[in-house]
Nucleic acid binder design. Structure first.
Lengths: 144, 144
DNA sequence: CTCTTTGCAAATCTTTTGCAACTTG
DNA sequence: CAAGTTGCAAAAGATTTGCAAAGAG
């Protein structure tokens, strides 16, 4: 997504568009990983050097409240993700990378439906994490 | 589980048994919710009034490293869970309760196997959260 | 006895808040 | 212009660390 599309999306959500918000949203939409607030700040400063960390937190809050992004608290840090579709987060315990696995077979969705009908819980969203070795690190075997 | 069984389990994990560690492990094993460090401290103080929050954190770290409990970071707080079996955490967004749903049909496990074979990720553990309305709050309808 | 753990207090770090100056619509 | 936003600095929490005293095996 380019700036124009993001700007339109923000307006549609009723968010006042400022240079700072555009920069933060752009960073998050284009991030393939799940950056922390600090990382969002560093990346946003590439295009907007004077942006403050306070504004990053403020903007992230606005984007979460309007449903543009979600926050994922991990043990090591809180990270932010613009991918709101059902998916699983794959965390490699060796190299630390976090990647998204799309819910291809609809397994996450069906797990959700199963639970809802069986337990009587009405789920509106979910979070699924798997911890282990990514393909690269698994192939690398015991070396490190 | 009673004190004796917990003490045995700790020893088996190579953890030196102290009154403090026994109290913390007992609180966590018998907790039906997922307490925060503060809550663990309050509950442990019922039997061991002088235990300090620093020791709670220290002990929790020991228990996590030995695989006796896991930590779950939520946006609002970090919580601890002695249930290491595959399950889903059901978080009610209205009343705030967190309950465990056992992986009855093996859906969590099969989702994991599906992902592992499809993406080439070797998962060793996982975390599954659903956010929504618990049975009680859903039945309560719009009232609150 | 020796080595580990505890309790306390200080230090860190992340996130939130307050407020005057500055933008956006 | 009026209301909402930003940047900075201070405040608030949560977690970690350092160290002398106490405890476990």
């Amino acid at each position: 997504l380019d700036r124009e599309q993001i700007s339109t999306a923000l307006k549609r959500l009723g968010i006042r568009v400022t240079r700072q918000r555009l920069a933060v949203a752009e960073v998050l939409v284009n991030a393939r990983d799940h950056p922390t607030a600090q990382e969002v700040c560093e990346r946003a400063r590439v295009t907007l050097p004077q942006i403050s960390l306070g504004t990053i937190y403020n903007t992230i809050g606005v984007l979460i409240n309007s449903g543009f992004i979600q926050s994922l608290s991990f043990n090591e840090a809180t990270r932010y993700d613009a991918n709101l579709a059902p998916h699983a987060n794959l965390l490699c315990v060796r190299c630390g990378t976090i990647t998204d696995a799309p819910d291809e077979g609809g397994a996450v969705t069906s797990l959700r439906e199963d639970l809802c009908s069986r337990i009587g819980f009405q789920a509106v969203s979910q979070r699924v994490d798997f911890y282990g070795l990514c393909g690269r690190c698994a192939a690398d075997g015991g070396r490190s």
